[in-house]
Amino acid sequence: MPKVIFVAQDGTRHSMEADGESLMQVATGNGIDGIIGECGGNCMCATCHVYVAEADLARLPPQSPEEDALLDGTAAERRPNSRLGCQIRMSASLDGLTVFIPERQI
């Protein structure tokens, strides 16, 4: 099963196995703090913001115009490696993906 690693603000690493679910679903389904997913994965609220490890950026699916627009409204600073967790679905090709949880989502 592919793995995704969420790195919390304090450096704690949460390694989760997932296939087919979005990063937001993996985080909220496992009770990982710092990922909210208020709109339920509808690309409406930008509360599942993550910073993707630089090394992993190239293998992510491209951003949709919706995601790009929503990233304008993140609570924490938008960076070049900002993505929305609800728009990234886990698969074998993303095994080992590492994402950092921003300091705030609201």
């Binding site: 909220t28 389904g29 009770g31 509808n42």
Partner: peptide, 27 residues
């Protein structure tokens, strides 16, 4: 659980009822 999908993708896709839960019981 969240209600917004009930009239949207929940009607179109075979999503499980549990996929609508905000958080697991553990939370």
């Amino acid at each position: 659980y969240q209600r917004p999908p009930l009239s949207k993708n929940f009607l179109q896709e075979a999503l499980s009822p549990e996929s609508l839960d905000f958080r697991p019981a553990r939370f």
